[in-house]
Each structure stands twice: as C-alpha cells, then as structure tokens.
Nucleic acid binder design. Structure first.
Lengths: 169, 169
DNA sequence: GCCATATTGTTTGACATCAAACGATCCGCG
DNA sequence: CGCGGATCGTTTGATGTCAAACAATATGGC
C-alpha cells in the first residue's frame, strides 16, 4: 500500500486538463517510511493548534516557552535561558527585545557580573502568562484527547527515547 | 518530580561565582508536560542525525525530500510538489533554484499549460539520490535501533494520530 | 468569442534560527 | 598584581520559512 497526500482541493473550478494521468494523488516514495517525516508532520499539527490557542494573546510557542522558564527561574541569565530553551544565545536577543518592549520581561543588570543580565517576569508578564497557561492547558487537553491517557504517556516515553537527554557537546 | 536540563558544562574553569543558589539545573515549569515540547526535542534530535547522514552529499533533509518526491512523480508541477512536501509554493522557488543549479532537477515547460513547469530528476540527480537514499536508510536504521521494531510502529501510529491526514483548508 | 475569476510561478518583505565575530568583562595562574 | 583565555550579550550575515502581491496564463459563464 502506497501512502499518499491528497491534492489541494480546487476552490471552484473542476479538475484542470493535465497530461499526467488520473493524478488524484502524489506519491511520497520512501518518505512515508521515515520516522523523521512523521515527527515533522506531528510537530506541524501540534504547533499549529498551539499557535491557534495562543494567537489571541499574540504569543508564539517560543515566546510562551521563554516566559514559562523565566517564571520558574527568576534571575536566570540569558545564556542559561538559551540553553534551557534549546536556542542559540544570539537567537534569544531579539526574542527578549520583543518581550521587554511589551513589558513582559525585564533584563536587570546582574549584581555579581557586569556582563550578565538577570531575567525577571514583570507583573504584566505574570498576568499574561497566567492567561496563556490556561489557553495552553486547553490546547494540551485537545491534543491529548486524540490519544487517551495511556497512549499519551507511551508517546512521550517513545519520543524521549529519540531525544537522548538533550546532550549538546 | 521536576524535570530539568543540565547547565552547559564549563569547558575548563570551575563554577563561576553566582548568586542564584546551588543552581545545578534550570526548571522547565509546565513545559515538560506538553506533548509539543517532546515532539520538538525528538524532531531536533532526529533531524540532527539526518543532517549528519546527508552532510557529505551537501543535501538537507528538505532537499532530499524534494528529490524523493520528484523521482516518484516525474513531471510534477511546482504547486503539487509544494503541497506534497508541505511547503509554501514560494518557498519552493529558491529550493528548486538550488537543485537546478546543481543539475539535480530540471524544470521543463509543461506542454499543456504555459504557466507550469514539469519537474524531472536529471541523470546526475538520480545518481545522487541513490547515494542519499543509502545514507538515509542507515540513518533510519540508527534511529529505529533506539526503539525496536514494535515500538517504532507504535510511535508512527501515535504520531499519525496527532497529524490528522494532513488536512489543509 | 469575451470577460471576470482562478491558478502558476515568482518577487518581495517579515521572521526565526544558527554561526561567526566582536567588545566588555571575568577568572585563574603565574 | 597583570595577562591570557574563557564567557556574556550583541551584531552581522546566511538560510529557511510563510504571506502578500504581481504578471502571465487558463477556465468557465454568459
């Protein structure tokens, strides 16, 4: 059996005159047998729902993750946050700029190291994050509903076996 | 139990004088309970291995996927390829430019529609793809070894439940 | 046949991301 | 002390991605 992808539905017109046979589907070759392919599709679907859940708050999944980690670790340094969020520290700079310009996070000069900034949620940041968490919990419930509790745990366990502890040399 | 991420190992120096307590780990808050988080980590790990496998051929996972789909569907139109690969058709343009400049893929004017191009692998493209497929099969074997055959099937089944058919409105 | 509407590939602009390089600062070793 | 190497946050450049807008072309209703 060959796995396929349905063509994008035509908005109005009927099927176009084309020369490549019946052409109702496009074969994916060996792609459909690759774990990475299925992981990517799942990632896209989950993130799309995630973004939909947070859209009203103008928060992306990435920014939400940063807020969560900062809340859990007040005073965190930027490099530590980058490591925890699996981002390059240069990637973090514009993200924090955005959060700071929206008064959600504050960079405070570290008392013991003039190169470093300590990161803190502002009151406004804490308020928005509380709302965002509610939306995310709803999102997670929606996702988990596709699985059931047992399969959800199984999935996470299997996924973690692919991402070994998060080693980075 | 709180899930954590180890701090980046210091290269040489001992622990820096810091004011935030023992600080051996950074908590992730509710992140570790989200399926999307685990999917993302798995995605990163799998793709890193994928890239390592293909690096010698100067092929990214994305370009490899395009070659596989074109090989399986000679004469495919760009929009169809974009749909099958889950890319925007504007994203495809520079990717095909790259593949064409390397003489791996050819854009041929479609006989029945002067707006469209039919896509074909060149002989060189077919040769390189054959090599790439071998590398990818080795990669897949490596990944699957973390799971075992039964768990691999389970994982794919669960992931597919998260990505419902690939609907796109 | 004509014309409004769609579709195709492309261009352009906005982001997110990584990697390399930089100045400022810190630290250990002599 | 002072100096060399390491680390911090930042800047800059290269990619990869989407979305909106565009000209050329095709389609279908009239």
């Amino acid at each position: 059996m060959i796995t396929t992808v349905r063509r994008r539905a035509r908005a109005t017109a009927g099927p176009t005159a084309r020369g490549d046979g019946a052409g109702a589907t496009v074969g994916l070759g060996m792609l459909a047998e690759l774990i990475g392919y299925h992981v990517r599709l799942a990632q896209m679907a989950v993130f799309a729902d995630f973004e939909r859940a947070l859209g009203a708050l103008s928060l992306s999944p990435g920014l939400f993750g940063l807020l969560v980690i900062v809340e859990a670790n007040p005073g965190l340094r930027q490099t530590q946050l980058a490591d925890a969020a699996r981002l390059d520290r240069s990637t973090l700079v514009p993200a924090l700029d955005k959060l700071e310009s929206r008064d959600l996070v504050e960079r405070r000069a570290a008392p013991d190291d003039r190169r470093s900034n300590g990161l803190f949620l502002t009151a406004q940041g804490a308020t928005l994050l509380a709302q965002a968490k509610r939306a995310v919990r709803a999102h997670e419930k929606r996702i988990a509903a596709e699985l059931g509790e047992g399969d959800r745990a199984t999935l996470i366990e299997l996924l973690d076996r692919l991402a070994p502890g998060g080693r980075r040399p």
